[in-house]
Amino acid sequence: MNFTFEVLPEDKMDYVRESCNELMAFQKSVATITPELFDDMSFETRLIPSVDKAIHNYTVVVKDGNQIVGYVYSNVSPKETYSNEFATFFDLSSVQKANVGCLSQFYIKDGYRKFGIGSRLYTMSMDWLNQFDEIDDIFIFVSNGNSNALEFYKRKGFTVSHDILGGFITVLRNK
């Protein structure tokens, strides 16, 4: 295996369409609480709106040869972005600054986990997010049933803040 990591410019987001849709299917497959909520989630309904609402976007793909085998998408967005018709993801008054960071999507294809790809993508995202003085708070939202991801982020120092939507999403926070 020959892994390469590539930062995608915003005009190349379409490169992760298939991987993003695979992520949504994976999340539905492991969900134990209202998996049907994933039926309307896709590249067009989750990733593109996130990119459009963000102030700063960062996407890294990992390839094995020419095949994309994983990606991470992080952003810096106004905190109000996380209170919408779907849910209020955190108590907005608990965030002092106007903007927050979010490690928003993270996916590695089955068969490519356990090679250190996740740790490298995570580190790249945190290094990117930590360069912004305009944010103090970084959030990660883990869908129910994805206990491996939840434990991964805990090992990296994030703590569980709370659950939303009756446990459909666990909110993790950097402090």
Rank of each mutant, 00 (worst) to 15 (best):
Gly157Ser: 06
Gln131Gly: 11
Ala31Gln: 05
Ser147Met: 13
Val62Gly: 05
Val76Pro: 01
Ile55Phe: 00
Val62Thr: 02
Val51Trp: 05
Glu85Cys: 04
Pro9Ala: 04
Asp110His: 08
Ser77Trp: 08
Pro35Leu: 05
Ser19Glu: 09
Gln131Arg: 11
Cys20Val: 15
Phe3Cys: 06
Met13Lys: 13
Lys156Trp: 07
Phe5Ala: 02
Asp40Met: 00
Phe106Ala: 08
Asp133Glu: 15
Thr4Gln: 15
Ser94His: 09
Phe90Trp: 03
Phe106Arg: 06
Val160Ser: 09
Ser29Pro: 03
Lys79Phe: 12
Met24Gln: 02
Thr34Leu: 07
Met1Ser: 13
Met1Tyr: 01
Thr81Phe: 12
Phe141Arg: 06
Met1His: 07
Phe106Cys: 05
Phe89Met: 07
Gln67Ala: 14
Leu8Thr: 08
Leu172Asn: 07
Ile68Leu: 15
Arg46Gln: 15
Asn174Glu: 11
Leu129Gln: 14
Asp110Lys: 13
Leu103Pro: 15
Asp127Thr: 11
Asp163Arg: 00
Gly111Gln: 11
Met13Asp: 10
Asp127Ile: 10
Tyr82Asp: 07
Val95Phe: 08
Ile169Leu: 14
Lys154Gln: 14
Pro49Asn: 12
Thr34Asn: 14
Asn75Phe: 12
Ala25Val: 04
Gly101Tyr: 11
Ser42Pro: 00
Asp91Ala: 08
Tyr112Asp: 10
Leu103Cys: 13
Tyr122Arg: 04
Glu22Trp: 13
Ile164His: 03
Trp128Val: 03
Gly145Glu: 03
Thr34Arg: 03
Ser143Lys: 01
Gly157Arg: 03
Asp14Asn: 14
Phe106Gln: 02
Val30Tyr: 00
Phe89His: 07
Arg120Asn: 12
Gly111Arg: 11
Asp133Asn: 15
Met13Pro: 00
Gly166Met: 14
His162Ile: 02
Gln27Ala: 05
Phe89Val: 04
Lys156Phe: 09
Phe141Met: 10
Gly167Tyr: 03
Leu121Pro: 07
Val76Leu: 07
Tyr112Lys: 06
Asp163His: 01
Ala31Gly: 09
Thr59Pro: 02
Lys79Gln: 06
Lys97Leu: 14
Lys53Gly: 08
Thr123Cys: 06
Phe152Val: 09
Val30Met: 02
Tyr58Trp: 01
Thr123His: 10
Pro49Glu: 09
Leu23Asn: 08
Val160His: 03
Ser29Glu: 05
Ala25Leu: 05
Leu92Ser: 09
Ala25Ile: 01
Ala31Glu: 12
Lys79Leu: 11
Glu10Asp: 15
Asn148Ser: 15
Phe26Asp: 00
Phe26Pro: 14
Val171Phe: 04
Gln96Val: 13
Val95Asp: 04
Ile68Ala: 14
Val100Asp: 05
Asn75Ile: 06
Arg46Tyr: 12
Glu6Tyr: 10
Thr4Gly: 04
Ile68Arg: 14
Val51Phe: 13
Phe115Trp: 10
Glu36Pro: 02
Gly65His: 10
Val62Glu: 04
Gly111Cys: 08
Phe115Val: 08
Ala98Lys: 15
Tyr73Arg: 01
Arg113Tyr: 08
Phe132Leu: 12
Lys53Leu: 03
Ile33Tyr: 01
Pro49Phe: 09
Ile68Pro: 13
Phe89Ile: 07
Gly65Trp: 11
Cys102Tyr: 04
Asn57Leu: 06
Lys12Asp: 13
Gly118Glu: 08
Ile68Trp: 12
Leu172His: 13
Leu165Lys: 15
